[in-house]
Design a protein around this nucleic acid. Structure first.
Lengths: 217, 217
DNA sequence: GTATGTTTCAAACATTCGTTTGGAACAGTT
DNA sequence: AACTGTTCCAAACGAATGTTTGAAACATAC
């Protein structure tokens, strides 16, 4: 249940394989052979494959939630209070929290982002439900801040812009590995997640703050 | 091979189920029972499940490519020529082409967009290869126009912004069905793909044209 | 040392998967 | 009528899946 050598090995192997191939395309046998544990270990320690998938996520999500809420407090932001952080501050806090998730592997951050992208697009019913339940609080907080920072937008327009924003993040992060490889072939610079975020924030900021379209062309 | 009642029924059922569940999560038996044809019909007419997946895409991509190239010619844009369309014109042309793909079902456009999103995130090797090969021309044309319209951006910055843009489109469209349902619950307006595009274009435009970040915070 | 609770392991389980098979049904031609 | 090529269909195939089993191995306590 709690901590164990075997449990960690399974989680380490699983998160890598899930990120590489997706959930359905990764079999328990791939995981257990990569982790060098017995096949039955997954069902023994986690109960089922779906439970393992959720366990992989919660190992990331726990620390991430704590990082974000800690950031709120440090900056003195309160949901009920009157302080209204700027959009850039909000985006910076969220992206920086993402980048600072503690992980085992070197590419842990990339892996987690890829997993989040997969979770959103690959419509695994149980996972979506789990994330919504586990993350409703953090997500609503983000919505709240965006709302206070973009009072000029209509409710609908703001809703869609948040979707576009999440789409950029999820999609980019879900393919960040392949993308950086493409870029490193042509250009010379090594593109780590931190650099990508520095490109991402101004883009998202401009999109969220854009003047709405008045009339259709 | 060519046209047949059975072939169409299989394609119709397959594209809906793929869009709903994903490729790996959809079995041939689900498809054939929904299409009310024999299980062996898929392998008889298409050869394999992977070939069926590609057939589903080519039924969309053929008309889409023709719509886009027709748009280029109508506007007098040429890849080698000197005419430099504005970014907004480019985005408008691409999104309008997407919206005008001829389909059988009522929600055909949403289905196709969802499929494109899945194709990009769900790393189906064969499908990615097929799309890159089939679509290289159209994609490079888009890159070319964006490059000419954003001369102030560095090569790297432009690369990433194009990724962010594609992410917004792919992600939003891949979940447009669920998202509109959410919105229709809270708000009253019905959000069809055309309306979403009218929200999307200004957002993307602003992001692509944003001033690059000078220094890291 | 014996007993107890936990973890590991090889083997088997039942299902489901994509694919193949061989003949029936059908259409068109000679 | 007899032949030919295409399409359909029930049935089966082998492989792979997630899960379960029951005994072995291990550790810890009495």
């Amino acid at each position: 249940m709690a901590h164990s050598e075997t449990v960690d090995r399974i989680l380490d192997a699983a998160e890598i394989l899930f990120a590489e191939k997706g959930f359905s395309e990764t079999s328990l046998r791939m995981i257990t052979s990569k982790a060098k544990v017995n096949l039955a270990a997954v069902n023994y320690h986690f109960g089922s494959k779906n439970a393992l998938i959720q366990a992989v996520f919660s190992r990331f999500l726990g620390p991430l939630s704590r990082l974000m809420e800690q950031g709120f407090k440090e900056k003195g932001w309160e949901q009920d209070g009157r302080s209204v952080p700027s959009l850039e501050d909000i985006l910076r806090l969220y992206t920086r929290s993402l980048l600072r998730i503690p992980t085992n592997h070197e590419n842990g951050v990339s892996i987690f982002m890829r997993l989040m992208g997969l979770a959103y697009t690959q419509s695994q019913g149980h996972l979506r439900r789990y994330l919504e339940q586990e993350y409703a609080r953090t997500f609503r907080l983000f919505m709240h801040f965006v709302k206070e920072s973009t009072p000029e937008l209509s409710k609908e327009e703001r809703f869609w812009r948040i979707q576009f924003t999440m789409g950029s993040v999820a999609f980019t992060m879900s393919s960040i590995q392949q993308l950086t490889e493409i870029l490193e072939d042509s250009a010379s610079a090594k593109a780590d997640p931190e650099a990508v975020v520095n490109y991402l924030v101004p883009y998202l900021l401009a999109g969220l703050q854009a003047a709405p379209l008045k009339s259709k062309m």
